[in-house]
Every structure is written in structure tokens, then in C-alpha cells.
Amino acid sequence: MKNFLRILSLIIVFLATPLSSHAAEKVEYLKTDWSFKGLFGKFDRGALQRGYQVYTEVCASCHSMKYLSYRNLSEKGGPEFTEQQAKAIAASFDVTDGPNSDGEMFTRPGKLSDKFVMPYENVKAAQAANGGAYPPDMSVLVKARGGGVDYIYSLLQGYEDPPAGITLDEGVHYNKYMYGNKIKMSNPLSDGLVEYSDGTNATVEQMSKDVTTFLMWTAEPHLETRHQMGFKAILYLIILTILVYFSMKRIWSRVETEV
């Protein structure tokens, strides 16, 4: 049994090394304490609501969020706007619907069941408006980047003047956390860019943290349930394992062999 566990854990450690060494070869990301990490990690509601504000007022003019619906904003485990607030948010957007009985498309105020309105009609239009670079959809962006939240958080604060010797083309910016350091997106944040209704001081660092938290939620909307359920499931499994262990000992005590 002892041998078995020793060998097994060695193998697992070995298998895990290539995974961690991957991260090591990249630049060191900026660190901050995320409330959603850890066994009981939960989102900070305030950060989610502020993050939503940053997303709509800053990011949403170029970046779509096509897998989210306005109803998600009032769902449990998210920003938890009240249903009234979520309805008001939805209604503030014009949604194209139809065709009506005359066969024509029309616009109407958004409803809770509508998907987030897209900034561009299609990928080509988005590329055309952004110098050929498609601003990626943000629904699962955090999960689609190797560094996850730390990468997004760092990138938003990583704009710098290019070091000597690096020349940038027109419409290209220098970012020390971007893969290859060249990014088409201009620095989106500056101190005081948005006005938080809860009085939080909108520094670049604060907005980066808030919007990254929001993006973590959009990528993983059931994260809180997952953490809660996971703790219960593992606790349950441990209790059952202990019970089965003693049952096993008792059953095997009938024969003279060590289990």
C-alpha cells in the first residue's frame, strides 16, 4: 500500500511538471489576489458589477460577448443585478428582431432572453473597422489564453513605450505581456475613464481587476456552484472512503492476508 501510493504520487508529480514548466517560460505576470481562487472561492459582486460597467463602456464598442444573455446578469453566482436592473440594462440596447408580418426586420428594446448585442454585424466588418485585426469575442477569453486571468490583468496594464531598437508599424502598440509584444489594440484604460456608481476610485489597476473578474465570470458562469459542489463531493467521497476502508478491513479479517 505504501509503495503503491509512493509510486503513484511520483508519477502524478512527474506528469504535472511539463504543465507547470510551460508557464515558467513566459514572462512573470502581475499578481493580485483573486477572490474566486481556492476551495471556497467566490466572485466579488461589487467587482463583477463594476467590471460589467467597464466592459459595456469600454470594451463592448469593439469586443462582442456573443454567448451571454442579459438574463445572465441577474442569475445567481454572477453580478446578481436585480431582475429590474437587468431588464433596464437589456432595454437600453436596441435589438434587431423580425422579420415582422411585412417581412421586414425591425429594432426593439432588448429583453432578458436576448443575447448581448454585437458591436459589429460579422467578423469581416469587425476586421474592417479595426485595421484588419478581429477583436476576439470575450465570452470565454479568459479560458482561451494560457495565462488566464493573470494574463488579461497584466496585459491591460502592460502598455509601455517601446524599448530602443523596436520600431512599430502604424496602428501597432507595444505591450510587455502580449505574445510577441506587439498588439493592435491601443491602451484601452486610463485613470478615471469610467465613473463607478459605488464611489470606487477608477484607477487603471482597479478597472483592470474589475473587468478581469467580470471576464472570469463570463467564461465560467457556474464557478461558484462548481466550488461549492466540489467541496461537498470531495468531503462525501472521503467519508465514504473511510467507511469502505473499515468495512474492507473487517471483511478481510476473515482471511489471514494483509489488505
Binding site: R71, E75, Y236, L237, I239, L240, L243, V244, F246, S247, R250
Partner: peptide, 28 residues
Amino acid sequence: LFTATYAVGAVGVGATVWPMIDQMNPDA
């Protein structure tokens, strides 16, 4: 001991089966 083990085990089986059934209900 055996009864407790069976009972706790049965709870787990039930809790595991439910998501597989509930996934067929109308989604969000």
C-alpha cells in the same frame, strides 16, 4: 458499519444520477 456504508453509498449514487436526469429538463 455495513449498513452505514451501504446507506452513504446509496446517497452518493442518487446524487450522481440526478444531474443525468435533470439535464433533460428545459434548460435556462
